[in-house]
Design a protein around this nucleic acid. Structure first.
Lengths: 142, 142
DNA sequence: ATAAAACTTGGAGTTGACTCGAAGTCAATC
DNA sequence: GATTGACTTCGAGTCAACTCCAAGTTTTAT
């Protein structure tokens, strides 16, 4: 194998927007596979490793914990998700969670938009069934 | 003031989907105002307090830290956001962050949809410029 | 009188996700 | 030989955000 092909951990860190320590930590906890090594034991990362790192960052943004990600990251292109109905169910559930998140975030954007014009921070729409008129003391003692 | 009007901390916990300990913690760190008290020093929460609690939960979902929330929670209905241009800027920035989050989440939903049918977990679209063909080792050693 | 329930406060502990420092190896350079 | 740079591993520390425990008060019921 040509050792010059691949990225150092520093280069992988730059490209994946993760720190070197985080990459080592992810390998340690099994989120990333054991990296290839040079003779001097330096890690070598391939483009597909960076793909996984970016996927991890994406999934984090959805609120999935590092532990929850593991089963999904354990699949390769060859793996067929249909052979893992348990993961399919989890993925479907996570998709619905994400949709809920999107809905909540959209509501908050709507609230921010309306409050940018009307002035107050407190929303009427955010997960609330009924609007409220007055918050007597927020900020007073703070 | 009629002491019977209001919710106990247990009732507030149920309605806000926060634990009693979390509500006390939020008051302690100044995220929530000092609560009204009964003669026996039990806290009393009013509907508007629950509104703030729900707003906090909402903002958490957007990734805003508890510390970052404080300036916004310090505003009441009477306060005019236009008197706080610094907070307006922050709010605008947060809104854009939320929009980015929504875009990322939507992309992940799209990836999940396509992978639910094609089988592999690794996305081509998720924050990636170029697709990758093969991930040789994810899951092998793990 | 005791017991139970529902709360209080203060302080410490837990969890997840990193982050840092110490001590080390190897290769390159002088 | 020493020095430097780029990495290594291990173990501990940090941070944010809770969560738990002990000891207490008040109210109510028996």
């Amino acid at each position: 194998m040509r050792e010059s092909v691949g990225f150092s951990i520093k280069e992988a860190a730059v490209q994946s927007d993760l720190s070197e320590d985080t990459i080592r930590y992810y390998e340690k906890i099994g989120l990333l596979p054991q990296a290839d090594r040079k003779k001097n034991r330096h890690r070598i990362y391939h483009p597909e490793d960076l793909t996984v790192m970016k996927l991890i960052t994406c999934l984090k943004k959805t609120g999935m914990s590092l532990d929850e990600m593991k089963p999904f990251l354990g699949l390769t292109y060859e793996s067929d998700l249909t052979e893992h109905p348990d993961l399919q169910v989890k993925l479907q559930q996570h998709k619905e969670n994400i949709q809920h998140q999107i809905n909540s975030l959209q509501m908050i954007i709507d609230v921010i938009d309306s409050k940018m014009t009307s002035g107050s921070m407190l929303p009427e729409a955010c997960v609330l069934a009924e609007p409220t008129k007055r918050v007597p003391r927020v900020g007073h003692s703070g």
